[in-house]
Structures are given as structure tokens and as C-alpha cells.
Design a protein around this nucleic acid. Structure first.
Length: 795
DNA sequence: TTAGGGTTTG
């Protein structure tokens, strides 16, 4: 994209890309998403071009919306980098310009200049200025007009030029300059609310010059703060100013500030963690990061990050914990309980905190085995507020956590409950000293990936948030049968080194572990196989039934009832679509649709529509012609999504649902830039929906000569049937396959007159039932059905 | 404007 385009004649609107919409200057504020907005105004003041560093410039200008009152509609515009230089050369006072790709900041000069309380910052690749001048005089023979048009009719545009940033070594910093720097983080605090209007990050960095420099970042939005996860991270800051404080140089962010951080591990991926929409990153940056990593690794002076698992916690120690949030409860206004785990078991007895089940957000209890791994953390004072922002299932790093041995009084509880001598309590004390705080780690971070592997390792033997499974069925009877040596209709794919056992032996063995058995199917539930389909949330581990058509049709009909006037979002284009007739003679009708302007401009009109006022049946009919249909409704004059009990997306015959607990659903324009295929994941992400996964859940009663046993078929049900649950939800062929398999397994086979034999791997685990009683549960794992009546053995 | 680490409450 050109840094800027200047053109004469038809007016600035002519070259502005169609997907951008103009916004009035009076509406500019930091709460508006300006990524696809433009602002148009006349240049009423053009400041001097100021050089910040080699090839880096800043220029301030004031533009005024024409035909409106000047006091509310003049706004400061700050241009940075090459754009500032080009603007200086090409734009004159009196020109009308259109600005795009800007961000909005608070104007620090509002009290002085009495202009707009916010300003526009134009920096980076996405920033752009379009300009035109007043039309030339009417007489084309006028020498002046001829001259003007000849110089300006040619489009003045610049090829994209990568800005060349120069970085000052920390040892070379001088006061009173604006600079770009790289450094290794040796101390940091999570952003905290300052006494002013911004959040404040404080950190200290160093580099091979061995100078340690304190830095302060003030930004109103948390997103714009540096994303530092641990000491040793690499940080790059653009446009920070140096100032003297306490006899040393410090750095503070200034106009056009941007920051990118990187993991500091030698050999790790160089993934920029940006805090702005656009940022520059090239091979030279990669080299710099790698050099700083190697240098830092050789420095013993750098404090090592005390991140340790629960299994290694020492009493009295302060440490950082990487964990997953399982549940939360407010103890009182100065203390919040966070229940977390990291998949490892702390060798010390842990403090139990008793909280009323209705005060707990998230599951109120877990299986006995899982409970042993859960740490109760008491977060105090300022951390109560940040704990409120966390979502159950989030991956966290908690900084400067204290493991306190001995008796602890828990606020809000009676002393008899809280007096637990020799139990380890985890406290996150109030304040931000020592970097105390909580940070949500992104799912793609290497630490979270590792944490997930640890948690999954545990889940292998102690599967599921088991109450979800047990809530669905109660317990029935048992009886014996004969053993057999016939061919097996299933095959185990696990590599467990265990000897096959009988069901009666298995029932006598210790709880937990894996078992191999040779069994027959005695009965199964549900008999109506569509009831085996469930929706599972991998974030909060809840499971629910798939809503039936009657319920969904009701939601559609209720949604179409609100036919009041409704404002579509600015990015949407509205139109009508004809519903293809169903049975012959049914009347055709047209329904309201909204399309993404962005997708239309990319020629992807049919790939995603937002459909309003349709019935369930009509939506299904339209789904044959459009790849993705998102049903929407009018609510309070706004266009919104339907209740999440209904599918949020129709893709052909498939319907997708979102988790009501974990989604933060809102109607937003999906970004399909560079996306080959718009699928459920893209749509769910854009709409803030936590996608529910279809799964199959059955309870089987198995038997051998010695006993019977109830087991679940869940985690590996898709492997067992060689069918995806998603397909089973949408197509008859997949459903038939499950039906045929179950029929085959439960009917007498050939001359032997007995049911087929199955070699099965069973995983045993403890789980709490409805009454809170713990019992051992079994689940079929790593086992696939290999033979259908109509076909020879499959492998 | 704001903060400017830190000798760690429950």
C-alpha cells in the first residue's frame, strides 16, 4: 500500500478504497474502532517537519471539518515516519485531506489549544493520506491553471518503502531525545491503573552495554502495553523519549510509540508480540532478537525467572506460577479465591478454602483425583479487580505468588474452618511490588503449550470433568456370560504393556490405570442414537444435549417477531434475498440479509451472509446456496446474534453452536484477508464465540464370563466408529454407520449364536456422581471397531 | 497527568 496517494480533480473521495467509511471528526474517540474509518478535513495549520532520528520524522497538523463549527471539529493530526516527510512536501495549508489507517489518542494539548479532546496518530504501513486541492480556475488557458494541473494531474504516489529504523544502544542514550531501542527485560510490572487516566507499565531493560534503563509506558488501553510474560523477554520500543530522573536516564513513551516483544529463549521461534495494529518487522529485527537472546543467555547477572510447577513449590518461597483457572469465588471485597491447576501435584498439604457452591464461578467440585492437583490462591486488594476480568479456562501466569506454611486465617470464614495448621496457602499480596500481578497467557505461547501437554497427560488416566458424564445417566444391574476365543470385532491401538484381565479381576483392582479386557456388548444407551450426540466445550469442559429442531425453530420464530427498525453495523451492506419455494405452491418471500462490505469487495459475496427474519426451515433451504449463514435478529434497534441456544452458523447441512458460558458473542465483521476458506472457526473467532465441539457419548454394558461392567464411550468414540461426531450430526451415512455397528455388536453372530467378542482398552478413573459420592468409572479408549456385517475385516 | 521497582500483611 502506498504511503500516501495525492491526486487532483474528482475530489478526495475518488481514490479512497470503498471499504473505508467516513466518520465525522466530532465522533472521534478512543472507544470507536477506527480501523476502517476515514476522516476528511481542510488543513488549517501545518506544523514544521521535525527530525526524530535518521530517517524518522514527526509533523503535526490541524484539520477542520468543512461546513461545521470550528470549536468542535478541528482535530490535531500527528504524522510519523516517511508519511510525515511526504506530507510536508506534498500538502499545503488549505488542502482538503482524507486520513485513513489512523489510531486515536488523547490530545495532550486540549487545555491549551481548546481543540478536539482526541488526536489522530498516523504511523506505520496502514496509515495513509489522500489529498486534493480546490479546483483550478475555470479558464483552462490560464497559465497558472495549466501549470497546476500539469504538476498535479500525475498521481503522486510512493512505492511502499520500508521505514528504516535505527536503534540506540542503551549505553549511548542522551537526555532530551526521541529514540528507538531494543533491550532485554530484567524487571517488569503488569500494567496497573495510574492516578491519572492511563494504565502504567514500568519495566527495566538492559543490553550488551550493560546499562540498566528504567522505562515507563502510559497508555489508556491495555492492548497497547508491552506484552511481557517473563524476565528475559526481548523488547523493542519505537519513539520513546529520554529524560533524567534520579541521576539516570529513563525512557517514557511518546507520540507514535509502538512496542513489540519476543520470547527470550535461545533457539525459540521469533514471534513478534505486537501491541499495535501494524508494525514493522524484518530479517534485521530477527537477527537483533537472536543476538540479544544469545547475549542474555551468557549473562549470569540476569535474574532467572522463578517459574516453577506446583510440584516444586517450597514453603515460604515467592514464585511465578503458570496455570489454568478452573473456578473462582469472591471471599470478600478485598479477597478473591482462584482455583487453579498446572497438572502437577504439590507434595505439601494444601489449604482448603470452604466456599458456598453458589458463590463459585465454574464447577463447584471436581473428582477426588483432580482435587488433589488444585491449588487455592487468595488474591488480595488490587488483584481482586484483575481477577474479575479472568475467564474460567484461561491460562494464567501469576507473578510473585507466596507459599505460606502454617495456620492461615481466611477472611470471611469462621476460624474452625480456616485453622489448618501445616497447610500451604498461596497468597497474591496486594500491590504491584516485585511485579505482583496476574496475566492471561495466549494459547499459542510455548508455556501454555507445555502446560496443556502436562494437563492432558493427567487427563489420560483421570479423564473429563466427570460429573458432566455422570449427570447424564444413573446406574443399572449386572449378570454373567461365557468366555470365548473367537475373532475380535475391534482392535486396540494403544501401546500399554498390560495383560488382558477379566471383568471381575478388574473390579477388584485398585482404582485408576488402564486395563485390557475381552468382552461382549450386553446393552447400550441411548437406544435412540441421535441422543448420543452431545455438544462439548473444551474450555469449560461442560457438555450439553444438542437442541432439538422444535426448540431451535421456536428461537427462530421468536427472533423474527421483533421486526422493529434496526441499524446494521457500519461494515454491513443490506439487501434482500428470495427464499426458494419449498413444496410447490408455497409462497415465495424475501428476507433481509446483511453482507460484509469487505468480503463483497473481495468477490466473496456468497461465502457469508447474515440472515434476518427467517424460519429454521427457510434457513436450511438457503444453506444450500450460501456457504455460511449466520442468523441475526433485531434487538432494541440493533442487529445482534440469536440466543446461543440456536446454531450461530449454518454451513450446508452442518450447524454449529457456541458455549453460552465461554462466548463473548457480538456481531463483528469477519476478516477473511488471506483466508482460503471461510469456515466455522473463522466465523466463531470473529463473533467472539467459543465453538462447541460435537461429540458422541454412550454408555455400554459389557460382559464376560466373570462379570458385567458399565463403561462410557466418549473420548475415543469417533475412533471406535470411524465417524466424526460432526458428520454424525449432519449426514445419514455417518449415522447409519453407527447404527450398523451397534446392531452388529448386539446381535448373535453366525453359527455360534453369541454376540461378537471385542478386545477393548479401558481407562479407569474416579469421579463424583450427582450426590457428590466418588466412584470408579471406566471409559473405552484407543479401540476401533474393525468389522461390519457387509464388509470383510478392516484394519 | 499518571510513575519513577525492591528490603514483601491477610
Amino acid at each position: 500500500m502506498p504511503v500516501h496517494v495525492l491526486s487532483e480533480g474528482a475530489g478526495p473521495g475518488a481514490q479512497v478504497p470503498a471499504h473505508l467509511t467516513r466518520i465525522s471528526i466530532s465522533l472521534i474517540s478512543t472507544s470507536i474502532d477506527c480501523s476502517k474509518k476515514t476522516v476528511k478535513g481542510k488543513v488549517v495549520h501545518k506544523g514544521r517537519l521535525v527530525s526524530l532520528a535518521d530517517d524518522d520524522f514527526i509533523l503535526k497538523t490541524v484539520i477542520q471539518e468543512e461546513d461545521s463549527q470550528p470549536d468542535t471539529t478541528s482535530i490535531n493530526v500527528v504524522l510519523l515516519g516517511a508519511l510525515a516527510k511526504d506530507f510536508n512536501q506534498a500538502v499545503n495549508q488549505g488542502d482538503v485531506v482524507v486520513a485513513a489507517g489512523f489510531t486515536v489518542g488523547k490530545s495532550p494539548t486540549v487545555h491549551k489549544d481548546k481543540l478536539h479532546p482526541f488526536n489522530l496518530l498516523l504511523s506505520g504501513d496502514s496509515a495513509c493520506i489522500y489529498v486534493s486541492r480546490p479546483p483550478p480556475p475555470a479558464d483552462p488557458r490560464s497559465p497558472l491553471a495549466a501549470k497546476r494541473s500539469s504538476t498535479l494531474s500525475a498521481e503522486v504516489s510512493r512505492a511502499p518503502k520500508a521505514p528504516k529504523y535505527t536503534y540506540v544502544k542503551l549505553g549511548d542514550l542522551k537526555p532530551g531525545a526521541v529514540v528507538n531501542v531494543y533491550g532485554v527485560v530484567v524487571f517488569f510490572k503488569q500494567p496497573f491503573k495510574s492516578r491519572g487516566t492511563d494504565f502504567c507499565s514500568t519495566l527495566k531493560i538492559t543490553d550488551p552495554s550493560n546499562r540498566k534503563i528504567g522505562c515507563t509506558v502510559f497508555c489508556e488501553k491495555l492492548d497497547n502495553h508491552p506484552k511481557i510474560f517473563r524476565i528475559g523477554d526481548i523488547i523493542r520500543m519505537h519513539r520513546v523519549k529520554t529524560q533524567f530522573f534520579n541521576d539516570s536516564i529513563t525512557l517514557v513513551n511518546t507520540f507514535g510509540f509502538s512496542v513489540v516483544t519476543f520470547d527470550g529463549t535461545v533457539g525459540g521461534a521469533v514471534e513478534p508480540r505486537a501491541s499495535s495494529r501494524s508494525f514493522h518487522f524484518d530479517q534485521e529485527d530477527r537477527r537483533t532478537v537472536e543476538e540479544l537472546r544469545s547475549w542474555a543467555a551468557s549473562q549470569t547477572v540476569l535474574p532467572s525467572a522463578p517459574t516453577i510447577p506446583l510440584s516444586a513449590v517450597q514453603p515460604k518461597a515467592y514464585f511465578d506460577l503458570t496455570c489454568q483457572l478452573l473456578a473462582r469465588a469472591d471471599i470478600d471485597c478485598t479477597c478473591t479465591l482462584l482455583r487453579v491447576w498446572d497438572g502437577t501435584r504439590c507434595p505439601h498439604r494444601l489449604l482448603k478454602v470452604i466456599v458456598a457452591p453458589d458463590a463459585i464461578e465454574g464447577p463447584s467440585s471436581f473428582s477426588t483425583e483432580k482435587e488433589k492437583l488444585i491449588a487455592n490462591i487468595l488474591a488480595y486488594d488490587n488483584h481482586v479487580e484483575s481477577a474479575k476480568q479472568l475467564k474460567i479456562g484461561d491460562f494464567l501466569r501469576i507473578y510473585n505468588l507466596r507459599a505460606i506454611p502454617g495456620s492461615s486465617k481466611v477472611p470471611g470464614l469462621t476460624s474452625s474452618q480456616s485453622d489448618q495448621v501445616d497447610h500451604l496457602a498461596f497468597h497474591l499480596h496486594g500491590g504491584t511490588a516485585y511485579g505482583r500481578g496476574i496475566r492471561v497467557l495466549p494459547e499459542n505461547s510455548p508455556d501454555v503449550q507445555e502446560l496443556k501437554r502436562t494437563i492432558e497427560g493427567f487427563a489420560e488416566d483421570d479423564e473429563l470433568n466427570d460429573s458432566a458424564l455422570l449427570e447424564i445417566w444413573s446406574t443399572p444391574p449386572e449378570s454373567p456370560s461365557d468366555a470365548g476365543t473367537a475373532e475380535s470385532s475391534t482392535e486396540r491401538s494403544c501401546s500399554h504393556d498390560v495383560q488382558p484381565t477379566t471383568l471381575s479381576e478388574l473390579k477388584r483392582s485398585d482404582p485408576g490405570g488402564v486395563h485390557h479386557v475381552r468382552v461382549q456388548l450386553r446393552s447400550y444407551e441411548p437406544q435412540r442414537l441421535h441422543q448420543a450426540l452431545k455438544l462439548y466445550c473444551s474450555k469449560c469442559t461442560s457438555m450439553q444435549d444438542v437442541p432439538d429442531d422444535e426448540l431451535v425453530a421456536g428461537l427462530f420464530s421468536e427472533a423474527s417477531g421483533d421486526s422493529g427498525p434496526c441499524t446494521p453495523p457500519a461494515w454491513a451492506l443490506s439487501g434482500r434475498v428470495n427464499i426458494p419455494g419449498g413444496s410447490s405452491g408455497s409462497s415465495k418471500r424475501a428476507l433481509g440479509v446483511h453482507l460484509s462490505t469487505q468480503l463483497m469487495s473481495e468477490g466473496k459475496t456468497k461465502e457469508l451472509i447474515f440472515l434476518m427474519g427467517s424460519t429454521l426451515a427457510e434457513t436450511c433451504r438457503l444453506a444450500s446456496g450460501y456457504q455460511n449463514i449466520v442468523p441475526v435478529r433485531s434487538s432494541g434497534g440493533q442487529l445482534t446474534l440469536l440466543d446461543l441456544s440456536a446454531p450461530f452458523l449454518f454451513r450446508g447441512r452442518k450447524r454449529y453452536y457456541g458455549c453460552r458460558r465461554c462466548s463473548e458473542a457480538a456481531l463483528r465483521e469477519p476478516s477473511a484477508e488471506g483466508v482460503e476458506l471461510i469456515d466455522e472457526k473463522i466465523v466463531a473467532e470473529a463473533l467472539g464465540i467459543q465453538l462447541l465441539k460435537f461429540c458422541l457419548l454412550m454408555k455400554l454394558e459389557l460382559q464376560d464370563a466373570t462379570d458385567t461392567l458399565e463403561v462410557f464411550l466418549w473420548r475415543d468414540a469417533e475412533l471406535f466408529f470411524s465417524v466424526s461426531a460432526e458428520d454424525a450430526a449432519a449426514n445419514q451415512e455417518a449415522q447409519d454407520r453407527i447404527r450398523q455397528t451397534m446392531d452388529f455388536l448386539s446381535s448373535p453372530e453366525g453359527s455360534t449364536g453369541e454376540c461378537p467378542w471385542l478386545d477393548v482398552c479401558l481407562s479407569a478413573y474416579r469421579a463424583a456422581d450427582d450426590g457428590g459420592q466418588n466412584r470408579t468409572c471406566y471409559q473405552i479408549c484407543h479401540t476401533a471397531f474393525t468389522k461390519l456385517p457387509s464388509e470383510p475385516a478392516r484394519s
